[in-house]
Design a protein around this nucleic acid. Structure first.
Lengths: 190, 190
DNA sequence: CTTAAAATGTGACATAGGTCACATAAATTA
DNA sequence: TAATTTATGTGACCTATGTCACATTTTAAG
């Protein structure tokens, strides 16, 4: 399936755009390809776009003063990624986004998204619901953080996204779970 | 300032509604008052509304199998609260909402919000941006959880919302920070 | 005002997870 | 293919936080 079709199916789950409306919607997206390890957003950058993953896998992450990495999100196909704080508030990026594998994305600028939302009520509807879902997911993760131990969180993650196991090294999984790689490694020790 | 005015000022920060549009918008909200300790949403309920706080303070929280409480959010004036997962997905509540102090709210049903969003493009714009902001805040809190220790998180919380210190008992603050009340109590021990 | 309930402080001890060090294995790159 | 980097496993030890117990203070309710 090509990029346009993948986005179309994704959008149709949350909003009803006519074919013409979707063609217009799609016209604002730019196709981009990145190599494994390539950096898309790096701390301190001005952030102009958000990215819809067509194939491959991105991560968004924060590096603290001790150079420890915390992963906010893995972005697999049909997921969106950016530094939304920087994007929405026109400030410099405080998080980074890079490629765990070779990745194709559709890129949408902040200005174009707002233009779309203004001109097409249905587009605004789509983006409202996309964020609603993200908001719910973020709160679930927060609760899981407070309530569950590492082992449980690790198993939940793999149950929810089995693909990750094969694509993402364990040190990155640890950085997503918020523990040291050693602790993750020891979970299934003898 | 009365409820309608408080909501109007709040909405105006994110969307430009004409006076007539806002009157229509406001007509969907119902005024409700609750006493300290009163339960608004309780686990297992069907959830029909979201609540915009006019005065007082709500908390939304989860109780785990060991009866330990985790607070997702304190809702002060001009904040919104509900079990959004249950509200948006039409499932039973998994979290609770109750009143830390006597509280006045404006209540908006799920059906009415969607109706409003359909009929008034500007209303949809408002709700999109409201959730955008919630999404960013949730991700910031997640990062802070992973990156910062209890003492730092406690001090950040009080810096951001000094009102909480006087209104909210420390055992609830601990439940928000995700630590035991004993640990919070010991932070400033000799 | 009195009594019950809730909130808070603190000691003793248990435990999950962190850190550092080093060995090995796997994956990239020259 | 060899060389280098990255990922992983594991021991020893440290530390933050949890749990339980009990005393004290504060707040709410009769």
């Amino acid at each position: 399936m090509e990029a346009k079709e993948i986005l179309k199916v994704h959008v149709a789950k949350l909003a009803s755009l006519s074919d013409d409306e979707f063609d217009y919607f799609f016209s604002f997206f730019k196709n981009q390809s990145f190599k494994k390890g390539q950096v898309i957003i790096s701390e301190g950058d001005m952030v102009d776009c958000e990215y819809f993953v067509i194939s491959g896998c991105l991560k968004s992450f924060y590096i603290n003063d001790d150079l420890k990495m915390f992963i906010l999100q893995f972005a697999m196909p049909t997921w969106w990624a950016s530094d939304y704080n920087a994007l929405y508030n026109h400030t410099k990026a405080s998080i980074n986004v890079d490629c765990i594998t070779d990745t194709e994305v559709l890129c949408l600028s902040n200005a174009d998204r707002e233009k779309l939302c203004n001109e097409l009520h249905n587009a605004e509807h789509f983006f409202r619901w996309r964020t609603n879902k993200g908001y719910i997911a973020a709160n679930k993760r927060l609760l899981s953080f407070m309530n569950n131990n590492v082992k449980y969180r690790y198993e939940e993650l793999l149950k929810l996204y089995p693909e990750l196991y094969n694509i993402v090294p364990k040190n990155l999984i640890a950085a997503y779970l918020g523990v040291s790689r050693e602790t993750l490694s020891r979970l299934y020790q003898a």
